[in-house]
């Protein structure tokens, strides 16, 4: 068993040719996708959160249902559904419109389902995180703003959001860990990223590559790459959470049903 894991000839591939570089190129696609999806999710998530805490029930109700449906479905389910049901004409339109300076994986129409799916799921999660942050503010803040004569939107913009959103920074960083891991799911939509690159490497035969490339070792390397990246993020979110609690003295409620939010919660206790 030990031999199977650590025998030097099973690791030789890592240092020969461009293998490691090839995996790293794949990982960069994942990171880029995570950042794009995060940027979109933050924007849309904020709008959804505002809709959910609105006073008007016609806005509040549908926003609540929308958020609860998308965040309670498995992400891979959403991705596969979109891959199947997005009209081919949209994908074509995207492919035609995509500028050539984009990385190769992002020029393919298939990426559209990936970006939309990741954003649908994560914007719902982020909306819940933001809502928790905003609602953790004492009601007195909003009432004081109203008493000073500030209209709703002005008090939102100047008083509530700056304080509420600061409280959700640690939870958002935690969600970025989940998002990073989730980007590997797009390999199921056959988009060229790190998992696909791993499979390609692993299918390499000794007489073409010169060395044996065992899948076990390939995916151990891929896993370690993610572990290092996400470990850094989890340390960061833990530190931010502790700092946030020290300054405000308040523990923001964590969103249910997400493993990395549970981790953030237990890490800092």
């Amino acid at each position: 068993m030990m031999d199977y894991l650590f025998a030097p000839d099973r690791w030789e591939w890592l240092f020969s040719g461009n293998s490691f570089r090839f995996l790293l190129d794949g990982l960069i696609v994942n990171i880029e996708l995570a950042l794009i999806a995060m940027a979109l999710s933050l924007t849309i998530g904020l709008l959804l959160a505002l809709a959910r805490i609105a006073k008007n029930p016609v806005i509040k109700g549908p926003a609540g249902i929308w958020i609860d449906v998308w965040r309670n479905l498995p992400l891979i389910f959403i991705l596969l559904y979109l891959a199947l049901s997005l009209p081919a004409s949209w994908k074509q339109a995207y492919q035609d419109a995509a500028p050539t300076w984009l990385p190769e994986a992002f020029q393919n129409g298939r990426i559209l389902a990936a970006v939309v799916g990741l954003t649908l799921y994560n914007s719902a999660v982020i909306a819940e995180i933001m809502r928790a942050g905003i609602q953790s503010l004492e009601r007195g803040q909003g009432e004081a703003a109203a008493a000073l004569g500030l209209p709703y939107w002005k008090s939102m913009r100047l008083i509530i959001l700056p304080q509420g959103l600061r409280r959700m920074v640690p939870a958002t960083v935690s969600q970025l860990i989940t998002l990073n891991k989730d980007t590997t799911l797009i390999s199921i939509l056959s988009i060229q990223e790190v998992m696909r690159h791993g499979r390609i490497l692993g299918s390499c035969l000794p007489f073409t590559c010169g060395v044996e490339v065992p899948l076990l070792q390939v995916f151990l390397v891929v896993g370690t790459m993610f572990a290092i990246l996400n470990y850094g993020l989890s340390r960061l979110s833990k530190r931010l959470e502790i700092k946030q609690r020290q300054t405000t003295g308040i523990e923001v409620e964590k969103v249910t049903g997400l493993e990395d939010q549970v981790a953030l919660d237990t890490d800092t206790k």
Partner: peptide
């Protein structure tokens, strides 16, 4: 907890 579930599946299934 920091590696993707899909990587774990691949390790166990193909590894």
């Amino acid at each position: 907890r920091n590696i993707p579930l899909l990587v774990l599946i691949f390790i166990f299934f193909f590894g």
